[in-house]
Write a protein that binds this DNA or RNA. Structure first.
Lengths: 336, 336
DNA sequence: TTGTATGCGTTATCAT
DNA sequence: ATGATAACGCATACAA
């Protein structure tokens, strides 16, 4: 066992109340002499407060739970880092867990965290959900939603980025650079993010007087392999001057396939992605893309949770802007 | 406040001792009737045990701390995921923290975790260290070292991969494919990992009757930019048929620079990396590389810690094998 | 200025 | 089969 407040009291020949006071800096009614003496003993004995015991009294653990689908998804890697940084700065610890997009696993983690008395939980919800179950869950700790909407009872706020707007920005940039025939490589047809981005694509076309055609959209999944396959066998590629990929992974596949087909980027075709994944600046040519502000998402989520815990009011919803990161995969199309 | 064992006892009109027993399945001396009745109330009242209170009695939190330099480094992303998976399966939670390779930050996290009574701590040590301070730290919880050696008092085991061997494997593979002029893009001269890999490179050459020349090694840092710069201005590149990059990031830079110089991979030059970063299979051409088993590293680290906590003996040191992942960036060199 | 006593939610021992 | 109670380490209201 470690040394406890009781041991210190015995050594210093004072009561534990006195020791507790100097530990917590409530020294206004402690004489300097004993204060200094106790502090020395605390140090000599290498005393470490038992935070559990403290928490059981104060009902505060200075701990936040973070549940994400998968830390290996670079978007969530950034979210996690942002949340941890902010928490650390404010003296909080992070319980971290992956749900693998399984609702059951998410619930299991929530229960564990509540049981361990986290002060609040940050959740990037699993894609798989069971709304009735969700609604009847009785979470006794504040919950903040990251990136995706969720329906738990004690939801205090939602922090998201606007995927439609990000896509809109990307496509407008393409149009701005003179592109008019823009191929869209979408993600799964039933995926919310993919749908949002498709809508942004449509809206950008319409707002710029271009018409939307169904055949300009190729569906797949969010993987590089998918991007590669769609493009490598696509006959009409010459009809387009630009490709808007629904995420960077797809864009990597597109780049690979175009390289393989000896189609030059960006001279023959421009490519733009979304996500600003770490490697997007490192491929050749460096990918122009949309930054989702994943780090800020995590950071702000943690910050708002902590603000809430301190008793202050926080916005019910905050939406981060997705900014374009201009690199070398898009070129201005000269109008002939 | 949440409902406590006391509330349940009141509702069921029994003592808290009885409730505690059914909660913990010690029902051998409880009548079926009361057992069932209490279980129903537990459920109806949505009772969640306060794990803190339990821990303060049992001295066990079922929580493990994980301190890594940076979750955004994909190697540690994998480690973290492996550790979390194993912990989850065994009913443990993970406190997660980044040290940014700062020793001070590492210490700060250790203190917080010890204070919060983790059962043990997994540490991938920061590069920056202060051995005297390290030795005099008196950590009261078991510590397990991941990937890098550390010197805390309560070190129970070390789990690493053998970087020299991994590099050796890579270079032997190159030689096996007929390459004899192999350029090595190393990391920082004073970095342990970089040095280990350089040694593996040397050893592979020597063991295969090839001589090591200092000018065949280009130093830089572990970034893509570094790889790109070293190669883009390197006049003697034509003298080589293969490049062994000290990590995948460097390899990405090499690929980019070779592409830019119109040197074909792998036809003109083969490239091999180390790390098997997520994107390494997704670049063009797909990178042949060495897998560091980062996921297993985290998984095994957590597993051994938990085994130790259960009172069993664990090996003082376990070293994981690094395996080659053959993809498309290396080609067999035809001997003329 | 310092100490006593109580309680936080739980487990576990020992009575009943 | 069930209950009373001490104890875990700490914070704090109140007494001295």
């Amino acid at each position: 066992m470690s040394v406890t407040i009781k041991d210190i009291a015995r050594i210093a020949d004072v009561s534990i109340a006195t020791v507790s006071k100097v530990i917590n800096g409530k020294t206004h009614d402690i004489s300097d002499a004993t204060k200094i003496r106790i502090e020395k003993i605390l140090k000599d004995e290498n005393y470490v407060p038992n935070h559990l015991a403290r928490s059981i009294r104060t009902n505060v653990t200075n701990t936040i739970g973070l549940i994400i689908p998968d830390i290996r998804n670079s978007f969530f890697t950034e979210v996690a880092r942002g949340a941890e940084d902010e928490s650390y700065e404010q003296g909080y610890s992070i319980f971290f867990a992956n749900s693998d997009d399984k609702f059951e696993k998410e619930l299991s983690h929530i229960n564990a965290m509540v049981s361990k008395q986290v002060d609040g939980i940050l959740i990037a919800g699993s894609t798989e959900r069971d709304v009735p179950v969700e609604l009847q869950m009785n979470i006794s700790k504040p919950v903040l939603a990251i990136d995706r909407k969720i329906n738990y009872n004690f939801l205090i706020s939602t922090v998201t980025t606007n995927n439609e707007e990000g896509a809109y920005t990307a496509v407008c940039y393409l149009i701005d650079q003179g592109h008019e025939k823009i191929l869209h490589l979408a993600g799964p047809q039933d995926n919310v993010v993919s749908i949002d981005r498709l809508n942004g694509y449509k809206k950008a076309l319409e707002d710029n007087g271009l018409s939307y055609c169904e055949e300009d959209v190729l569906y797949g999944d969010f993987s590089t392999a998918s991007g590669y396959e769609r493009i490598s066998g696509f006959k009409d590629i010459k009809n387009y001057t630009a490709v808007f990929a629904s995420n960077d992974m797809i864009a990597f596949g597109v780049i690979g396939a175009l390289n393989a087909r000896q189609i030059s980027i960006p001279d023959d075709i421009s490519v733009i992605g979304v996500d600003n994944v770490e490697h997007s600046g490192l491929v050749y040519p460096a990918l122009t893309t949309i930054d989702q502000s994943a780090y800020e998402l995590g950071q702000i989520a943690a910050r708002e949770m902590i603000t809430h815990l301190s008793g202050k009011k926080i916005p019910e919803k905050t939406e981060l802007i997705q900014n374009i990161v201009v690199r070398n995969s898009v070129i201005k199309k000269e109008v002939i």
